[in-house]
Amino acid sequence: MRPERTGSQPVRSEQDVVLARQVARKLAVECGLRLVDQTKLVTAASELARNTVIYGGGGDMDWEVVEEGSRKGLRLVFRDEGPGIADVKLAMTDGWTSGNGLGLGLTGTRRLVDEFSLESAPGVGTRVTICKWN
């Protein structure tokens, strides 16, 4: 049986953050990412899943195994319908924190992946997409 190419995982509690990490690890292995890249992707997923729970009030992680020629990669989308981020530019500044973390959540996460995009609107929600290629 051919493995699933896409799927979704609820991210609503602390336990879901652990589950999201485990799903990301399993998929990263399937995509043939080497160990360091698996670890980077899983760590990025953990950071974003926690943001979804804490700041977004819960949401989902959508995943997709992507292919481009002989390359394979894993794309993860973290989306919530929370309060959103008022100043995306500020949130992407190194060292910036809303108060609970170390101030490396989003900028640190961006360094761990190959592709990173953040869309957010106050009152609508936040959507962060990351991708890592093998």
Binding site: L35, V36, Q38, T43, T107, G108, R111
Partner: peptide, 14 residues
Amino acid sequence: MQPAVAITLVELGL
């Protein structure tokens, strides 16, 4: 600490 974890931590900025 596993090497892959150490590399990731430093890249994360921690």
